[in-house]
């Protein structure tokens, strides 16, 4: 039975993979079927997963097993219910309080951490002495890092008209930005091709056994 289910799953996977790929030829009922089943399954899966992986172990399970030790959990439970009240139009305003709490807490935590990691540490990482580097490659790399950082920041300085030295450095900054966008595009292409490779490895390996899975 287990072997049958594995084989059935592989055939089902192959059918849905080909159905999704068929959209590249043109829109068709197989693509629509696969798309709608995917959306429906995902919604159902996440709904059940949220109940069994988040609500039961973190809330219901703890409250029901040892109420006195977990009485504090009634606060998030209440906040959760307040959020659901959004479904009643007349009482919708109540849901704003838990949303405000979540946004406020997230903003507070993130602000601190982003300032440390994305501002202070990154600024410190740019304050380097290129001449102190070991190899000529590292020295050139460090110079490019400093020049690139300064020029790109200049490009985003809008308080003065970009002409003269400011204009020249900001134009140089555009080049650095374009190169970084090009690199990002290259990586994006690589990621998309990787997805295709993954699906083909499944079709040619697990399904057709042409290659070793």
């Amino acid at each position: 039975m287990s072997q049958f289910m594995t084989t059935f799953g592989i055939w089902l996977g192959a059918f849905f993979t080909i159905s999704i790929f068929s959209f590249l030829y043109k829109d068709n009922p197989f693509y629509k079927l696969a798309e709608q089943i995917f959306v429906g399954l995902s919604a159902g899966y996440w709904f059940i997963y949220t109940i069994y992986s988040i609500l039961i172990p973190n809330l219901f399970g703890k409250i029901l097993s040892d109420f006195n030790s977990n009485i504090m959990l009634l606060i998030p439970a209440l906040l959760g219910m307040m959020m659901l009240i959004r479904l009643i139009p007349k009482l919708e305003w109540i849901s704003r309080y838990p949303i405000a709490l979540v946004i406020g807490t997230s903003a507070g935590i993130s602000m601190l951490r982003y300032t440390q990691s994305d501002v202070l540490s990154q600024v410190a990482a740019t304050m380097i002495n290129p001449l102190g580097m070991n190899t000529i490659g590292e020295k050139i790399g460090s110079f490019i890092l400093i020049i690139g950082t300064v020029c790109v920041i200049m490009y985003f300085y809008f308080s003065r008209k970009q002409e003269g030295i400011l204009g020249a450095t900001s134009k140089f900054g555009i080049w650095f930005l374009m190169i970084s966008f090009g690199a990002s595009f290259g990586y994006t292409v690589m990621a998309r091709i990787s997805l295709l490779i993954g699906r083909l490895q499944f079709l040619l390996g697990d399904w057709l056994h042409i290659i070793k899975p």
Binding site: S117, Q122, A125, S180, S184, T188, A191
Partner: peptide, 18 residues
């Protein structure tokens, strides 16, 4: 990381050893 996210993480490889 996935290739899409990689360029965004490279700046964290620095002398601060993030």
């Amino acid at each position: 990381t996935t290739a899409v996210s990689t360029p965004g993480f490279i700046p964290y490889i620095n002398d601060q050893n993030q």
